[in-house]
Design a protein around this nucleic acid. Structure first.
Ligand SMILES: NC(=O)c1ccc[n+]([C@@H]2O[C@H](COP(=O)([O-])OP(=O)(O)OC[C@H]3O[C@@H](n4cnc5c(N)ncnc54)[C@H](O)[C@@H]3O)[C@@H](O)[C@H]2O)c1
Ligand SMILES: NC(=O)c1ccc[n+]([C@@H]2O[C@H](COP(=O)([O-])OP(=O)(O)OC[C@H]3O[C@@H](n4cnc5c(N)ncnc54)[C@H](O)[C@@H]3O)[C@@H](O)[C@H]2O)c1
Lengths: 235, 235
DNA sequence: GTCCCTTTGTGAACCGGTGCACAAAGTGGG
DNA sequence: CCCACTTTGTGCACCGGTTCACAAAGGGAC
């Protein structure tokens, strides 16, 4: 086989594709557990909840790892996707803010499974510092920089109140971290080169509410006939 | 002022716009608290972390609610966005699966604030049923249909283990619910007309890991020169 | 080796969303 | 009343992503 630098591999995988690779990986792991050796794009697409043309195009960005007439080798594809996503190494994650949510995350086994390891818990509350959660000691936020360095933390999960999030983010970034998963409902300002992803429960619910309203409006014959807002706010 | 049926309002707001409205709303609420009466698209855009042309186009989909040369009236815009999102009514939410995550969500004050009310907690574990959390009694999953009907639940938050999620979703949908926020790491199969949104921590971390890997690769001079996978899996 | 069947990989049309750039609209000052 | 200034609302070009549809590639039967 010629070692052609597959046209796709060399530079940049589309962001939308990256976001779906974990889905494929999960589906593939399920299949591997069930002992499946190969899978067609059609079957994998169904398992991942996407259409098969999209799946094939996504995979084509990683290289040409299928066999025409047969499909994809499950184990091999798992390896290739894992490698692409950087899951062949393990990542030390620190959780900052050990309240309701931080505790739930710390106790969650699900993401330790693949490449991620909770390496530190940090909080500002002296009441919480020193607690033992999921086999880890909660450390004081003053130790942030030291802990990040000492444990080789490269991803930080922010689960502090909104008011503290920006300030903590600044420190974390100053300490060299460039990947943050933010649960606090604020827009974080960060310098170029830092990746932020946010999870926002309240936004998700509001989006659902929007569609729910549309659905019930449709039942009852539209929203009280076009524009009918109370004159309360008279601008 | 003429009551022209603003060209935009009547049908469909782009999905991308809907997803940003909650962001604008949050920024506006902050401004209202600080006593600001009007705001320009530029300032609001900065607060929401988007560009101002996008903001204006988004708002134009709701109608023409600004004043040229001045900006937008903060209170009025809050009202219009809230109404569009369906936050002027309140929504009864049920949380199914009261484990680590379900408890954190139940105790979370942040989304009760705007239109959403946790109306029920349900679990299958007899050990958990009967617990009193955040002023609510945990009810048995057998009561699911009755509880949904009795409390007028229209949005369900799924926080069960992955294995139970599809089964619970089926029951919830059969009971008439068409809006689900799913935390379990599975692709749910649902009929047409049912809206699912998912929150998947593990996917977010994997996306971060992908970019983190790229960043460190760039430092160290690319990934071991193009294609160099162990021949372990020899396909 | 030849033929038929399956399934991949991708060119190309299409679609939704983004951002520029500007005309239109409104404000305030003189 | 007019002019200078501000800021909205949007036409338009562009871009990333999706989907269709099919040629090319491989497998297996004979
Ligand atoms: N609980 C949920 O279900 C949920 C859902 C969505 C979003 N959120 C958001 O997640 C964040 C955490 O929520 P929670 O319910 O766990 O809140 P919480 O109040 O229970 O926990 C916050 C923790 O952060 C700590 N903290 C405060 N300031 C800090 C600082 N400067 N440095 C380090 N730690 C600090 C506090 O001591 C506390 O332990 C909030 O921003 C919240 O809006 C929570
Ligand atoms: N904890 C986290 O931080 C976290 C993060 C991301 C995703 N998740 C996902 O969220 C879900 C819940 O996580 P968790 O950590 O709270 O798990 P958990 O095991 O602590 O809680 C699950 C709860 O669901 C209940 N349950 C099981 N089957 C049920 C059924 N058929 N009907 C009703 N209730 C049922 C269990 O009794 C238990 O109380 C899981 O799917 C997990 O993968 C959790």
């Amino acid at each position: 086989m010629i070692r052609r630098l597959s046209q796709a591999r060399e530079r940049g995988i589309p962001e939308a594709t990256v976001a779906r690779l974990p889905l494929y990986l999960r589906a593939l792991n399920g299949m591997a557990e069930r002992g499946l050796a190969t899978v067609s794009s059609e079957d994998l697409a169904v398992a991942a909840g996407v259409n098969s043309a999209k799946l094939r195009k996504d995979l084509s960005h990683l290289g040409s790892y299928g066999t025409r007439g047969v499909g994809y080798d499950v184990e091999y594809l798992i390896y290739q996707i894992s490698r692409e996503l950087g899951l062949t190494q393990d990542w030390a994650v620190a959780i900052v803010g050990v309240g309701n949510l931080g505790r739930a995350l710390a106790n969650y086994g699900g993401f330790v499974s693949r490449g991620f390891r909770v390496a530190a818990l940090l909080d500002a509350d002296p009441e919480v510092v020193g607690d033992h959660i999921a086999g880890l000691n909660v450390e004081h936020i003053d130790e942030l920089e030291a802990v990040i360095k000492r444990r080789g933390v490269s991803i930080v999960v922010l689960a502090t109140p909104a008011a503290a999030a920006q300030q903590v983010a600044d420190r974390v970034i100053a300490a060299g971290v460039t990947s943050i998963l933010n649960f606090a409902p604020v827009v974080l300002a960060v310098p170029e080169g830092v990746d932020i992803r946010k999870v926002d429960l309240s936004i998700e619910l509001q989006i659902l509410a929007f569609h729910e309203q549309r659905k019930t409006d449709r039942m009852t014959g539209g929203p009280a006939m076009a524009e009918e807002w109370p004159e309360a706010v008279d601008l």
